[in-house]
């Protein structure tokens, strides 16, 4: 299953709820959620701790828009819009956490 998170993880509990509820699968960070996957962000450790259970992806146009394209943490895979589509196609279901 694909989980899509679009809220800042330091300003919202969405990522925490997702990690606590979901059993595994792909997590795609988009819009303000991309900050979580940047070096030095307090949420980066949360992602790293969950990497065994989940595969994390980040939408690069959103990270670049925010001036952080060069700060992606290890273990998170960068995707473009085409990669976004692939993730939705390759998963049986998809949840956008609001």
């Amino acid at each position: 299953m694909l989980h899509i998170i679009n809220k800042s993880t330091l300003g919202s509990s969405t990522l925490d709820t997702c990690l606590n509820t979901a059993t595994g699968g792909d997590i795609l960070l988009i819009e303000d959620a991309v900050y979580a996957a940047t070096k030095g962000n307090a949420s980066a450790a949360v992602l790293q701790a969950a990497m065994g259970r989940f595969k994390f992806h980040v939408l690069m146009p959103d990270l670049e828009a925010r001036g952080l394209g060069d700060r992606l943490i290890e273990g998170v895979s960068p995707v473009d819009y085409g990669g976004f589509v692939d993730l939705t196609v390759n998963n049986k279901s998809c949840q956008s956490w609001l």
Partner: peptide, 12 residues
């Protein structure tokens, strides 16, 4: 984050 250098918004 509003003040971060290097913002490139073409992609979005």
């Amino acid at each position: 984050y509003q003040l971060k250098k290097g913002q490139q918004t073409k992609g979005i």
